[in-house]
Design a binder for these strands. Structure first.
Lengths: 196, 196
DNA sequence: CGGCTTCTGTAGCGCTCGATATAAAATCTG
DNA sequence: CAGATTTTATATCGAGCGCTACAGAAGCCG
């Protein structure tokens, strides 16, 4: 059986190469990033890429997973560490303003950028479902707080969640247009005024 | 001199062909729409396209101009026909909810969709500048109302304009994700609660 | 060492991209 | 009609796309 490492060992750092692919996809989107671009940035040749990561689409799926773990808006964490939905959302928006404009990496959101005008329906569908799941999660958090009496009785959890999601996605586009962290923080502050 | 129409006359309706190109660009974005797709939808062959519209980029520029005249959010008109910036914004958001989800044409905004992940820097730059101009216009309208005493003195026109722009751009993404007109109208209503 | 396995670089596959050379077809002018 | 002019359809062009066949290189095991 093949339990130990046999054959010629890999001559590059898989993690580092994946990170380079992430940066490139983040900056240019899925379609606009060619395999030649990827191999150049990763410092490897096409056969190594295909042997280590499968095809371009599979590599992108792995990039998306890594992005969500590393750079994505940590919805669940924000809610877990804050006492109320309102505080969680406020923190989420403020963190988004910071991370979306962080000069250490490309602006905006990899998921949003890669699914707008993407001709791979399954890629679009997967990311879209992730967004819908986040939306439903957000809505249920708000609904729970309304049921617990932490929010006014007339509050509409669905509308509020849709609004927050809209502001968040809008912030990713503003960031890509070059909006500053301070500007997005102002946007977040104004958005919170809409909270009941 | 060549004052009259000489030579073989064009055998297709230029306006109709342009509209077909608009729909296709709207649905798929600039990059994802190939010349072959365009010629198929327009019912013409490549040489006719290049003779009538220049190259792909020039055709897209004409499509953008047509879009702004025909389908774009009529910022200036909304403000011209409404007495205050607040009323203009409210109308703009409500109209956006309707037009972004109109089943008669592709969802979302051609300009937003075509500039995210577009590898033609000049195309991106042109559309981006249009957005920035709209943003500055919106801000000056709000500032004028504040100066006229129609809005509270503490109102921050820049922050408010950034917020409205963020919500609008977010709505285009929500529309592309399949959000309904009713949902976007709720989002617009919630957003207006943030108005001072 | 020699066999086995896996990775690496070269080189190029078939395909689609945006854009065109070419010549026939269709109209106006004289 | 003949000549000039413009559009048309066919048939590509060179370049870049995602991807891979192939053979040599580099590590294991006996």
């Amino acid at each position: 059986m093949t339990s130990t490492t046999r054959g010629r060992p890999r001559s590059f750092d898989r993690e580092a190469a994946l990170e380079q692919a992430l940066r490139l996809f983040w900056e240019r989107g899925y379609e606009a990033t060619s395999v030649a671009d990827l191999t150049a940035a990763m410092g490897i040749r096409p056969p190594s890429l295909y042997a280590a990561f499968g095809d371009k689409r599979t590599l992108f799926a792995e990039v998306v997973a890594r992005y969500q773990e590393t750079y994505g808006i940590q919805t669940t964490r924000a809610f877990a560490e804050e006492p109320t939905a309102r505080a969680g959302v406020e923190r989420m928006l403020r963190e988004a303003a910071a991370v979306l404009t962080d000069p250490a990496h490309p602006w905006g959101c990899l998921l949003v950028g890669s699914t707008v005008n993407c001709t791979s329906p399954d890629v679009v569908q997967a990311v879209r479902e992730q967004r819908e799941a986040n939306l439903r999660d957000l809505e249920s958090r708000i609904r729970a707080d309304v049921a617990a009496g932490l929010e006014p009785a007339g509050t509409d959890p669905a509308a509020l969640a849709q609004f927050i999601a809209t502001v968040l996605q809008g912030m990713t586009l503003r960031a890509r247009d070059g909006a500053s962290r301070a500007e997005l923080e102002q946007v977040a502050a104004v958005a919170m005024r809409a909270w009941p």
